[in-house]
Deep mutational scan, measured.
Amino acid sequence: MASDGVVVEIGKVTGSVGTTVEIPVYFRGVPSKGIANCDFVFRYDPNVLEIIGIDPGDIIVDPNPTKSFDTAIYPDRKIIVFLFAEDSGTGAYAITKDGVFAKIRATVKSSAPGYITFDEVGGFADNDLVEQKVSFIDGGVNVGNATPTKGATPTNTATPTK
């Protein structure tokens, strides 16, 4: 695992066909100046998982989280898009600690492993708008004895992609 920078880890949970599971997305290594904004994309298989919603985690402190935390689910493109932009203008609602960034709610549709993997990152910046190093650890849903650990090695991303 990367020793510096922010680590975004997609949790690994267990479920069975027809059940709804909650998959946490963790941030670790949050910089001392916090995270003022970030955007990134995960990939998944809508034939295996139906993403039914995404909720902000406990490290989102904006009293009205829909102003700073936004997501979009595109089953036709097989992606989930995340956007966080601190909304106070003063840094008061920045992410300042490690913990759960988001909770992905999904219904298991198939007995195949439900991988959720890193696809791309736009950027991560602290309260001074300084770009942060970030790496990703894939996860998803274990169905029966299947284990979604494909790509469990962190993917280092030093520069934003478009």
Rank of each mutant, 00 (worst) to 15 (best):
G144Y: 13
K67I: 09
K103Q: 10
V6F: 15
G18Y: 04
A106P: 07
G144F: 09
D39V: 00
A36N: 01
D87F: 14
V6G: 07
G123Y: 00
G140L: 12
A125D: 01
P148D: 04
K33D: 02
G11H: 08
D76M: 12
I10V: 10
G89C: 03
N127A: 02
G139M: 05
S111H: 13
A158F: 09
V100D: 10
R105C: 07
K12S: 11
I59W: 03
V6K: 02
I54T: 07
V48K: 02
G122P: 00
K150H: 07
P148I: 03
K162R: 05
D98V: 04
V25A: 06
G123P: 00
P65D: 15
V21E: 14
P46S: 06
E50C: 04
A92K: 08
P75I: 02
D62S: 15
F84N: 01
S110G: 07
P31Y: 13
I35G: 02
V61W: 15
P75T: 03
A2T: 08
D128Y: 08
V6E: 11
Y26W: 01
A92P: 03
F82D: 01
D87M: 15
D119E: 03
F82G: 01
V30D: 03
G99N: 14
Y44V: 05
V8P: 05
T71H: 04
I60G: 04
V61C: 09
G151D: 09
D70H: 02
T149S: 10
S32F: 05
I59R: 14
R77Y: 15
T20R: 05
T20V: 09
K97L: 10
I35T: 03
T90E: 02
A125W: 00
A94Q: 03
K12D: 12
K133L: 06
Y93K: 15
V108L: 10
A94K: 04
I116E: 02
S111F: 11
V100Y: 04
T71Y: 04
I137M: 08
E120R: 01
T71N: 03
G144A: 13
T153K: 05
V48T: 04
K133E: 05
K67R: 09
V13A: 07
G15R: 10
G5E: 07
T159A: 09
S68P: 15
V17I: 03
D4N: 08
F136I: 04
G114D: 09
